[in-house]
Design a protein around this nucleic acid. Structure first.
Length: 295
DNA sequence: AAGGCTAGCAACCGCACCAGA
DNA sequence: CTCTGGTGCGGTTGCTAGCCT
């Protein structure tokens, strides 16, 4: 037995908001604030809308100081760095970009940045970044995307960024966050207790603020509790990232050679057993992502 | 000019978290 | 401790304008 829906979906209006609806909602929030009950709000103000829809409309469009479009290079870099470091935590990423909403950042990533950096798009079968003189990584997905590709996208992004020499945001080395063994703060001998716990303990111990900027302008990422935050596991990590990635892909039988391109086969979500990997840290990170996003 | 395709954006859906009863 | 309802979040889909053939 599932939980009751938040509203009568059959009777509430869906689709684009009319200017009058915006005006009603804006006026109410201006007078009473947003601290109330979103579910009950539409009834109170006579809007035939779902409360969640009202909340979304307010947060994404009616809220003061919202900016749309026109992302700057600096914002591009920050989004890339943060995505590479923490993945698709759009609300966390958006929180570091004043005036931007998670929806905006998510759309911007999916429609512009991902395509620009990794190639492909939501309706593409193959993602390819034209990188002359470099081996090209292509992600093949029968669905043109999908949650299971997220980890691969981030690996791909990491390789791309190294090949093309993209600078990370100050104090935000991508590898240091994704592959802890390459960060001096944590030696292999010290053990690796999972990607997420690593980020938290090495950059923001005990804190809940997702991202902290030091007086020197350095930025560190921390990750608070989240529905998709995987549980930490006690393993050690001691290996070279790209070797491990290649080995993993070969093990799951999805790495092929084609015209000097590396192909990553389509069924990432059903990729075989990660446990056969010799480097537990890599295994753990892969598994974390697949489990965390493969639903 | 018309039809198909693609990109971009707005909005919805469903799940998980969390606080209060 | 358990249940319930509100909220937050990420993934996905629908719509539309512009481009291409």
């Amino acid at each position: 037995m599932g939980r009751a829906p938040c509203c009568d979906k059959a009777s509430v209006k869906k689709g684009p908001w009319a200017a009058e609806e915006d005006a009603v909602l804006r006026a109410y929030v201006a007078e009473h604030g947003t601290a109330g009950n979103w579910i009950a709000l539409p009834r109170k103000i006579g809007l035939n809308r779902c409360g969640k829809s009202c909340r979304l409309r307010w947060l994404n469009y009616l809220r003061p100081n919202i900016r749309h479009g026109g992302f700057t290079d600096e914002e591009d870099r920050l989004i890339c760095s943060l995505y590479a470091s923490i993945g698709s935590r759009w609300s966390t990423i958006a929180a570091q970009l004043p005036g931007r909403t998670d929806n905006d950042v998510k759309n911007y990533w999916n429609t512009k940045l991902k395509r620009r950096l990794l190639g492909g798009g939501r309706r593409s079968i193959r993602y390819a970044l034209p990188l002359p003189q470099q081996p090209r990584l292509l992600l093949m997905s029968p669905t043109g995307g999908g949650a299971a590709s997220t980890a691969l996208e981030r690996m791909q992004l990491s390789v791309q960024r190294r090949h093309v020499g993209i600078q990370d945001a100050p104090g935000l080395p991508f590898y240091g966050n994704l592959w802890p063994a390459q960060q001096s703060v944590l030696s292999p001998a010290a053990g690796y207790s999972g990607f997420w716990s690593h980020i938290q303990t090495s950059t923001n111990p005990g804190g809940t603020t997702p991202l902290v900027t030091s007086p020197a302008g350095e930025t560190a990422v921390g990750v608070g509790s989240s529905s998709s935050t995987p549980a930490a596991s006690s393993v050690t990590f001691d290996g070279d990232m790209e070797d491990e990635i290649e080995m993993l892909l070969q093990q799951i039988g999805c790495l092929e050679e084609e015209d000097s391109r590396l192909l990553i086969g389509g069924e990432a979500g059903s990729a075989g057993s990660w446990s056969s990997c010799s480097t537990p840290g890599v295994d753990s990170v892969f598994q974390d992502y697949v489990q965390g996003h493969g639903q």
